[in-house]
Simulated scan of single mutants.
Amino acid sequence: MINEGLRGAIELLIEEGENKYIKEELYGAAYTNKNLIRVEAPVARALETTTLTSLVDYIKENVDLVAESNIIVHIESYNKVSIKKELNVDKRRECLVTAQALTPGIITDRFIDPERFNIMLQSAFVENEDRAKLLKVSGNIKEENVKSIGDDGVSQSAAIKTGVASVTEVVIPNPVILAPFRTFPEIKQPESKFIFRMQTGPACALYEADGGAWRNVAMESIKGYLKARLEGLDNVKIIS
């Protein structure tokens, strides 16, 4: 029969053995009796902005002493750019600033009434020749004449009002070249092809027809803008 003193000693030895961290090497592999969690170095919460100008100012004004370290300007997409530091001791990259472009809502791939379509063209698209043609149609199409809309599979024609009582049939070419506000205001908005369609109701719709190639054009324009304004700063690398 084990006395109380011996029992206490045995329990103490067991407890110490359980709490002790043990590392053993066996056949070239390392084994431990506990899972350890690494305490990672803290990182800053990214400052959020909406323009490319703010990124340039942040770097040139040496906010947070960025001039003392290597930084990366990462063009993540056509409407998002971030400033990141070099890898830290945990191989993590700290994000200092993120710029997300503010762009108006553009409705594509579905039909909307001519009034909404007209407003969208004027408020969310750069003025050009094709935009003017679409505005002429969407702003003057006569509801009683929608049945006269013609379609050859590529171009459509519609009866529109050209005066107080006169009606003229116009042909809308396809595709049309338009430049919606889709990226940062500091750069030229990229143009791309759209298919313009009409249907009875009346209703109008735009469908993207360039496979998203405009995104690459926008990213290259962002890169060119930043390179020109950050020229001579050897600690800054721009990637896209």
Rank of each mutant, 00 (worst) to 15 (best):
Thr168Glu: 15
Ala101Asn: 01
Glu127Ala: 07
Lys147Leu: 12
Phe184Asp: 01
Pro180Glu: 11
Phe184Met: 10
Asp90Gly: 06
Glu129Cys: 01
Val176Lys: 04
Phe184Ser: 01
Val171Phe: 03
Lys136Asn: 08
Ser69Ile: 12
Glu48Ser: 07
Leu121Pro: 00
Asn70Leu: 09
Val56Arg: 09
Leu102Thr: 12
Asn88Cys: 10
Lys60Leu: 10
Ala165Thr: 15
Asp152Leu: 11
Ala44Ser: 15
Lys80Ile: 06
Thr49Gln: 06
Thr183Pro: 00
Ser166Leu: 13
Lys85Thr: 14
Gln156Asn: 04
Asp151Cys: 03
Ile72Asp: 09
Lys161Asn: 15
Ser166Phe: 15
Glu61Tyr: 07
Leu65Thr: 11
Thr50Trp: 07
Ile149Ser: 01
Ala99Lys: 01
Asp109Leu: 05
Val154Cys: 10
Asn128Thr: 03
Asp57Gln: 07
Glu143Met: 12
Gln100Lys: 11
Cys95Ala: 12
Val81Glu: 02
Ser138Val: 03
Leu178Ser: 03
Ala124Pro: 00
Ile71Asp: 00
Asp130His: 03
Ile119Pro: 01
Ala46Gln: 09
Gly105Asn: 11
Met120Asp: 02
Phe181Ser: 04
Glu94Ile: 15
Thr103Pro: 00
Asp90Val: 12
Val171Ile: 11
Glu48Thr: 08
Leu87Ile: 09
Asn118Phe: 05
Val43Ala: 07
Ala159Met: 12
Ile75Asn: 00
Glu94Thr: 15
Ile172Gln: 01
Val176Asn: 04
Ser123His: 06
Leu135His: 05
Ile59Ser: 06
Ile177Phe: 07
Asn140Gln: 12
Asn118Met: 08
Val164Met: 14
Leu47Gln: 07
Thr53Ser: 08
Ile187Ala: 02
Tyr58Cys: 10
Ile72Val: 14
Lys80His: 04
Lys85Met: 14
Val126Ala: 09
Leu96Ile: 15
Ala46Val: 08
Lys84Tyr: 08
Glu144Asp: 13
Ala46Ile: 08
Lys147Gln: 10
